Amino acid sequence: MKKNEASSVTYRVLPSGRVQVRYRLPNGEQVTHGTYDDRSTAERHGREIQVDLAKGVKWDDRKARTPFSVFMRDIYMPFRETKVAASTYLNNRTHLSKLIDYFGQIPLGRIDVEAVDTWWASLPESVARRNTYMFLTRAMRYAVRWQYIQTNPCQVEDAGKNVAKPRPKFTVGDIYAVLDHADDRTRTAALVAFSGHLRIGEVCGLNRADYDAAKGHLRIERQAANAGPVGLTDTKTGNRRTIKLLAPGQAALDEWIAAHPMLPTAPLFVGTKGGRINRVHLRDGWDAAKLAAGFPEFHFHDLKRVGLTAVARTGANVRDVMFRGGHRSYTAALSYLDASEDRDDELAALTNARLGRR
C-alpha cells in the first residue's frame, strides 16, 4: 500500500493486479472508493478525491450505491407510512410498483436527470404519470436530505401542470334527475354531499351528533378510511369545519333522522348489516341511479362541485368557497368552480342593467 503524499488517499494492489483506491473521511473512517484496472486510472480518481478532500466537499458515495428498490421499499416507504393517511399510502404503493418496474436495482447515485427525463418521456401524458412523478420527487427529496444522493434528479419541466380532462358540467336539475332513481339512503347522502360540499369519505364518516337540526349546521371533522376495514381518520385536508347546510340537504336530513332515530354517537348512515356505511356501498348506490338516469359520467364527487359553484354564483368570494369546501388553497377552491354559457348570459345581463342606469 502506498500513501499519496500530503493526502489521505491510498492505493492497494490486489492479487488480480487491479488497483483499489481508498481514502479517509475527516472523522478518520476509511472508505473504499473503487477498484480500477490499472494504476494510472486509479491515481486519476485519487487526485479527484484529494481535490475534494482539500475543499472539504468530498462526498461519501456508499449510500448512493443503495439500489432504488431497496431504498424505496425498506427505507422510504416505512417512513412515508407514518406521515400520510392509509388511503394516500395505498396510492403511493401503486406509484412505487410502477417506478420499481423501471428503475429496479439501479443504484440511487446513477439515477440522474437524464434517467428521470427518459422515464417521463416513455409514458403517455396522464394524471397517473404526473402523480407518480410527484411521488418520486418527494422520495428523492428525502434521499438528498438523508444524504443518499447530492441532488434531486427530478427536474422535468412543467411536470406539475394539470393534464386532467375537463369534467362534464352538471346542474342541480341533473342531480334531481339522478335522485329520482335512487334509494332513500343514497338520496339523502347525495343531498347532504351537495348541500354541505362533502367528499364521499366525509359523508360516510358522519355521526348523528354532527348535525344540529335546530340551526341546520353540520360539523365535518372526519372521514371513513379508503382502505381496509371501515375506520375513521381526519379529513383529506385535515380541516375541521361547521357549515350551514343548503336547504335541500337540511330538509332531506331532517326527514332521514325522523325516520331513523339513533343515538348521538351512532353513524348517520349505516349499511345493510347495521355498521357504518363505507364508500363502496354509497358509490354503488349512486352509480346505479346515475346509470338509470342516463348520466354515466356523473361522479359522486361532482356533487361537491355543483354545490360550490352554486354558492360562488351568489357573489361569495374565494375564501368563502375555501371555508365551505374545506380547502387549504385558492387553487383547490377554484378547481371546483364551473363556468357556463348560461351564467355568462346572466352576468352580461346584470352588467348591462347597471350600465343602463348611468
Results as ranks from 00 to 15, higher is better:
R319D: 01
T331M: 13
K290Y: 05
T32E: 11
T151Y: 12
T171S: 14
R145M: 06
S97H: 07
D117S: 07
N352W: 15
N352Q: 14
F298W: 02
K55L: 14
R24W: 06
Y133W: 04
V9E: 04
P153E: 11
R343K: 13
N92G: 09
V311K: 07
A121G: 04
L253N: 12
K63H: 01
W119S: 05
P261N: 10
R65P: 13
R18D: 06
T35P: 11
H299G: 02
A293L: 02
Y23Q: 10
H260L: 11
P248S: 07
A293R: 09
F323M: 13
V321I: 14
D74R: 14
K55F: 12
E346G: 00
V192T: 02
A251W: 08
N92Q: 02
V192I: 13
E297I: 00
V84G: 07
D345L: 15
H181S: 10
R354K: 10
Y148Q: 06
G307W: 13
Q155G: 05
N239T: 10
Y142M: 12
F298C: 02
F79S: 12
F135Y: 08
R187N: 08
V70L: 14
R319G: 00
E125T: 09
H301M: 03
A86W: 08
I49P: 00
R305T: 00
A252Q: 06
D234N: 12
F323D: 10
Y36M: 04
R44Y: 12
A86C: 01
D183E: 11
V230H: 01
